[in-house]
């Protein structure tokens, strides 16, 4: 593989038809079309319809010259990422004064369930309000790279999900009614 030293993709001019387009926010560069960010010349795009491939939004994209060591070093240091060694999904089963007990499901090496106790101090302040019986959280242990520094991490993050809507509730109720009428229970 070989790394390009200069971007040569086409950038399409924005559509300037009609007076309403004069109100384009100055934050958006006039020559950048934000919807179609790169072309793959050899492929018949009509085959792909709506692409859902991942696109880069890292700071490296705007840089033209990627060949100098200093630039690469600076860019790498901006890249923050983490690798998980072990991950669990837990739910709270018991709450005490300053701790809670949870049942854990190992997501990395699935097997039997585990029971663990966590102190409230292990939980981020914003997540503390989410602690409750049945509340679900993720616990992952691994390493993080932040600005070039490797840091061990153990993160507990409570699940935040939208509440059910009417449709969810109705689906459950409909299924229950249907089963009650149609199961051959003797």
């Amino acid at each position: 593989m070989y790394k390009r030293t200069a971007e040569s993709r086409e950038i399409q001019p924005a559509d300037k038809k009609g007076s309403q387009d004069q109100d384009i926010d100055p934050l958006i560069p006039a020559e950048a079309d934000l919807e179609d960010e790169y072309e793959i010349p050899s492929l018949d795009r009509s085959l792909l319809k709506d692409e859902t491939i991942s696109e880069n939004s890292s700071p490296l994209k705007e840089k033209e010259d990627r060949s100098t060591y200093q630039h690469i070093l600076k860019s790498k240091n901006k890249v923050n990422y983490s690798i998980t060694l072990q991950k669990w999904k837990g739910h709270v089963t018991e709450i005490k004064e300053s701790s809670f007990t949870a049942e854990l499901q190992d997501l990395t090496n699935p097997g039997t369930k585990e029971i663990a106790k966590f102190d409230f101090d292990d939980i981020s302040p914003d997540d503390k309000k989410l602690i409750g019986i049945g509340a679900v959280f993720y616990w992952s242990v691994g390493y993080r790279n932040e600005n070039g520094q490797t840091i061990k991490e153990s993160i507990i993050r409570f699940q935040r999900l939208v509440d059910w809507n009417e449709s969810d509730f109705n689906k459950a109720a409909d299924r229950a009614s249907y089963l009650e009428k149609n199961l051959n229970i003797q």
Binding site: V79, N80, Y81, S82, I83, T84, K87, K89, Y138, S140, G142, R144, E153, I155, R157, Q159, R160, L161
Partner: peptide, 11 residues
């Protein structure tokens, strides 16, 4: 790029 947050991103 933080594997610890994959499930949170899905959520």
């Amino acid at each position: 790029a933080r594997e610890s947050y994959f499930e949170s991103v899905r959520d």
